[in-house]
């Protein structure tokens, strides 16, 4: 095992994996995380803890991971290269591993312009793909990138993110391949709504054999309303929600739109489960964690499997 994480064991045993995410609070109150964790618990194999997403300052991702872990859920540490140079990245990786975090997602991070402190200096010392390479070097070779030997290598299942819907399309699969070449063990995709584009993307991914080298967790986000879908289409870079998708929700009366959104999310997960090369789903129920149980249960993915350390080698 590379990391021995629960997520790694579940996927290695051939189970369809489930992850979700939990955004740390805009303050120092731990109860916020603990309450969210209660809603996530039992529904997932690991839970992402975001790292100052959209450059809005929040409780640190590592601290959030520890709170999640104390609640009995396996954390998945998101780490962006926007705020830390390679010294800070290495140091935080060692610290997170020492605290028992075993899953990592390497990201660029949204530009600081969008957050609280648009005047902040951006770091981007190395990029997210180089971070993957850095973690893999530390984990597998037991050395710092400088070549010095580590006093204990960090153990992480290394993840990356891809957006099959971003521009330009022709670079989507080559860029994913770069991440796999750099050492990504798993990938979580941007929220998928346009299944036609995603299927085409997966065909290209499979042609390169990337699904055999990297576990693909398909991202889904239930829509609370037709309005939310339209808003995301307009405001979120790289989101592609087909009109037909939104129309199915818009056709429902207002009070039933949320239920329809959940029903469609479940439907999507069923479809993804049947697709070759998909190893699991990443359910991003944004500020809607109380629905995770309904969605994941509805998709027939509960209870989550328990895979002991000994059963996989």
């Amino acid at each position: 095992m590379k990391s021995g994480s629960n997520l790694e064991r579940v996927m290695a045993a051939g189970h369809f994996a489930v992850t979700a995410e939990c955004g740390p609070p805009r303050g120092a109150d731990p109860d916020h995380v603990i309450k969210k964790a209660e809603l996530v618990k039992g529904n997932v194999d690991a839970c992402n803890v975001t790292d100052n997403q959209t450059s809005v300052v929040r409780m640190s991702s590592i601290a959030g991971c520890m709170l999640v872990k104390q609640s009995g859920i396996e954390p998945l540490l998101q780490m962006v290269v926007r705020d830390r140079n390679r010294i800070a990245l290495q140091s935080d990786l060692l610290g997170a591993s020492a605290l028992g975090v075993r899953n990592l997602l390497c990201l660029s991070g949204d530009h600081q312009k969008f957050g609280d402190d648009p005047q902040a200096k951006n770091v981007f010392d190395i990029d997210s793909i180089q971070l993957i390479h850095l973690v893999k070097t530390m984990r597998d070779e037991g050395v710092f990138p400088s070549g010095d030997k580590l006093d204990g290598a960090p153990k992480f299942l290394i993840g990356c993110a891809v957006n099959p819907f971003a521009d330009p399309y022709e670079i989507r699969v080559p860029r994913f391949k770069l991440k796999v070449d750099a050492g990504a063990d798993f990938v979580q995709t941007q929220c998928i709504y346009n299944m036609d584009v995603f299927k085409k993307y997966m065909e290209d991914v499979k042609r390169q054999g990337l699904h055999e080298r990297c576990k693909i967790l398909a991202g889904v986000t239930p829509l609370k309303s037709a309005g939310m879908g339209k808003f995301m289409n307009r405001m979120v870079a790289g989101i592609d929600i087909p009109d037909s998708f939104i129309k199915r929700i818009a056709d429902e009366p207002k009070e039933k739109q949320a239920a329809k959104g959940i029903e469609m999310c479940i439907e999507q997960i069923h479809e993804l489960k049947e697709m070759e090369g998909i190893a699991g789903v990443h359910v991003m129920a944004i500020e809607w964690e109380e629905k995770l149980n309904e969605i994941i249960g509805g998709a027939g993915l509960l209870p989550r499997p328990v895979v002991e350390h000994e059963t996989v080698h």
């Binding site: 660029s108 949204d110 530009h111 981007f124 990029d127 997210s128 793909i129 180089q130 993110a161 957006n163 971003a166 521009d167 330009p168 670079i171 860029r175 770069l178 941007q190 870079a237 790289g238």
Partner: peptide, 9 residues
């Protein structure tokens, strides 16, 4: 970044 574009393109 050295391996772009990022998701914001």
């Amino acid at each position: 970044i050295f391996h772009g574009p990022c998701g914001g393109s």
